[in-house]
């Protein structure tokens, strides 16, 4: 076992982990941050996407020890300071961009990473960026709409094209 220390959602945390412990298991287990989900074991589904030092990372594809000293942000850290939904979260609710909710944390974290790099993505850019996030419920229609809306674009006009 080795000790690992990092900042998660702004708070310093540390714990003892095995070398093989994945970041996602450290978040979900010792830290109790169960909003980050595990949907596969081949780094395909994206339910576990978090931000590590500002970059979107699949937390199942990184060891906890690799995040030593990192700033990690999870879905639990995405709401506004007063607890209300952030812009992307609110757009997902407004546009029914989630059903069972299981892929949702990863979708929101991926969407946030996309909009940071590309504040006004086209429909095609959104779809391409989400290639690493699988949703089985929504058929992606309302997820794409939600991200367009979160970026301040005219959703009905784009969806009608």
């Amino acid at each position: 076992m080795s000790n690992v220390t990092m900042k998660v959602n702004g708070k310093p945390v540390s714990g003892d982990v095995e070398g093989r412990t994945l970041l996602v298991d450290f978040l979900r287990g010792p830290l109790g941050l169960t909003g980050t989900h595990v949907g596969c074991d081949t780094s395909q589904c994206g339910a576990c996407v978090v931000h590590v030092n500002g970059e979107a990372v699949k937390a199942c594809a990184m060891f906890a020890l690799e995040a030593e000293g990192a700033e990690v942000r999870t879905i639990e850290g995405m709401a506004e300071a007063d607890g209300s939904l952030g812009t992307i979260q609110a757009a997902f609710q407004e546009h029914h961009g989630l059903q069972c909710g299981f892929c949702t944390p990863g979708m929101v974290m991926s969407a946030a990473a996309l909009l940071k790099d590309n504040p006004k993505p086209s429909e095609a850019e959104i779809r391409e960026y989400l290639e690493g996030n699988i949703c089985r419920c929504t058929g992606y229609h309302n997820i794409v709409k939600a991200i367009l809306a979160a970026s301040g674009q005219d959703v009905p006009a784009i969806a009608a094209e």
Partner: peptide, 11 residues
């Protein structure tokens, strides 16, 4: 949605 969007779902 509020709990699912904030990581507070209980699966």
């Amino acid at each position: 949605d509020v709990r699912f969007l904030t990581g507070k779902g209980r699966y």
